[in-house]
Design a binder for these strands. Structure first.
Lengths: 206, 206
DNA sequence: ACAAACATACCAACTAGTCGGTATTGTCAT
DNA sequence: ATGACAATACCGACTAGTTGGTATGTTTGT
């Protein structure tokens, strides 16, 4: 005799909660997102929530780790241009890719950890560090490609790879804020255009 | 006979509430800041709060206007370099000034409206528009100086004044996020350094 | 049988906002 | 100057609903 309730693939509640956290926090921010909301969006009961996570803060921190993994895959692994041989070409393709992502509803391309750290940097070291880890991982990964491009082509003004990688992060995060305030991603694409222009000038043959 | 209670300069509760909102929202974000907290920080009762403002949202919107006025004065009027004759020199001085501001505790130099819009863009059109108005006002004001510099010296790649002004905003806002995640302003100064480098290259004689 | 996964009912603390009232002010006739 | 009067500024207790988190179970896979 089959059980009444569906077989419910186990361990899925956990990842559904993380997905829901990504979705809701990107849309409303961390504080404005309640545990009940996350549970409802994930289709999971509150008891289940606190079975998997000791607190809302703990879920948010795990969701930050997950966000890093997701970005690594979506931005540094899956796209075909990540296998382009020339590192400068790869870097420019990276910028173009980030610009192309800036389309559709704002909450679909903005950054989970960037949104979260704004509200939590002063009140939760756990969340601040989780956000920092994600941003740092992205920047250090990107710095590898930049470093290779510098080695191959040189760069003006003694710019360092890691510093430029953080600058890329900065322009993206700032672009998200402008896109939010205008409810329109075009301004963010424009700002990333400036970034591309800057990088190309840095690598131009003097 | 003097009255027992102090003369209490009237209308001060209103501005004290606005100041408290700036302080607390920059530190904790909008949602995490309660009306009670704002009242306590301002030394004002809750009854008084709702006498001056119909809602928390309304205070936040008025505080955004006030933030614009404050920025206009602090950044575009008071500093002596705003009277430098050469517009390009003035623009570079502006960037240097913004970089120099990035010092001390993070919540002391970050942006009230940038923080607020992150959480409210999807849930409150009132706050989104109030934030946008502030960011737009800053950018359009800065674009005047950039326009003058372009007229005088020309610029590479057909960059427009307003677009570059928004790029400046973007880098600043992004720098704030990095500073928050690292609990250290130095990374933000570095990113503004890249911005300065970009602008100088754009205006270099070809 | 056993532990992990899930659910429901519940709690104390906190939330934005209301309400009835008091204190302080400026205005104006005297 | 002074007293009457209305308007504005201010106060703190209250409410209805929400918050993160807990306590106590039931279901499920092995």
């Amino acid at each position: 005799m089959p059980s009444r309730t569906a077989p419910t693939p186990r361990l899925s509640a956990r990842s559904k909660l993380i997905d829901a956290a990504h979705l809701l926090v990107r849309r409303q921010g961390y504080s404005a997102t309640s545990v009940d909301q996350i549970c409802a969006a994930a289709g999971v009961s509150k008891g289940s929530f606190f079975h998997h996570f000791p607190s809302k803060e703990a879920l948010a921190a795990v969701a930050a780790e997950q966000w890093t993994a997701r970005a690594e895959e979506l931005i540094f692994t899956l796209p075909p241009w990540t296998r382009v041989a020339d590192p400068l070409e790869r870097l420019i393709a990276h910028i173009d890719f980030r610009a192309a992502m800036l389309d559709g509803p704002v909450e679909a391309f903005t950054c989970y950890v960037g949104t979260m750290v704004q509200e939590s940097f002063a009140t939760s070291e756990v969340l601040r560090k989780a956000s920092d880890a994600s941003i740092t991982a992205y920047s250090e990964r990107l710095a590898q490609d930049i470093e290779a491009a510098i080695t191959l082509y040189g760069i003006k003004h003694g710019v360092t790879a890691l510093s430029l990688a953080y600058h890329v992060q900065s322009v993206l995060q700032g672009g998200f804020i402008l896109a939010k305030s205008k409810a329109d991603p075009s301004i963010a694409r424009e700002t990333v255009g400036h970034l591309k222009c800057y990088i190309k000038m840095l690598f131009e043959r003097g």
